[in-house]
Amino acid sequence: MTRPTRVQLFVTCLVDRFYPSVGHAVVAVLERQGLDVSVPMDQTCCGQPAFNGGFTDDARRMARHTVDVLSASPDPVVVPSGSCADMIVHRYPELLADDAAYAARARDLAARTFEFTQFLVDVLHVSPAAEPDGPRLAYHASCHGLRGLGLVEQPRQLLRAVAGDRCTDLPGAGICCGFGGLFAVKLAGISAAMLASKIEAIAESGADAVVATDVSCLMHIGGGLHRRGSRVRPLHVAEILAGTRHD
């Protein structure tokens, strides 16, 4: 697509409530690209918890609400989460396929919705400047971004540009951390065992911070790190990028 001048930010419910600093970092990065960033006031949750829990009707209601909120403007939508972006891009059109009033708008929204790093790399062709000093980073590839949206290179490209050799993949970077939304509560034991493996990999990496595109994973990993008294910090990729210049 041609380079837009304005974007809407769908910040996701978890960033909104738990990690506002990630939202501000995203805005800072996008504004530095000369974009006019709007944040629709009435955005809430994309509905993924309901959808993944099998509550299809509830998910549909939330999807319709989000379609309404993000269709007030035709501007592209940026989402700092592979999981929520995947929900809008792939699940909304399915969920609302038989809804005469929403099917076309859901498809339209899906076509102009981008995960944050995907938008930076594929649409804006951003190449951030290197930051010679900083923490050693280990990258965790969040599942839905990786496998739903095919975010293989975009986040790594940005992180490599900023951190160079300071950034490596976690061992088993693409293995799920065990969050899975309600899964972490309904099958908490399995989820915790998966988290323990992830935290072992983080320890093995020797990194100062674990970086991902999704705060859902980071909340889960961060909660495990904190419980264990680890000093490794969970960071969203936007927080890394906001600390650098972009040309």
Binding site: V185, G224, R227
Partner: peptide, 23 residues
């Protein structure tokens, strides 16, 4: 939800949401 906190901590929400702060 206590199943979450058997083996991991849960972050306290921010005092003001991002959308509220932004606006």
């Amino acid at each position: 939800l206590s199943a979450w906190t058997t083996e991991r901590d849960f972050p306290v929400p921010a005092p003001r949401s991002f959308v509220q702060e932004h606006h």
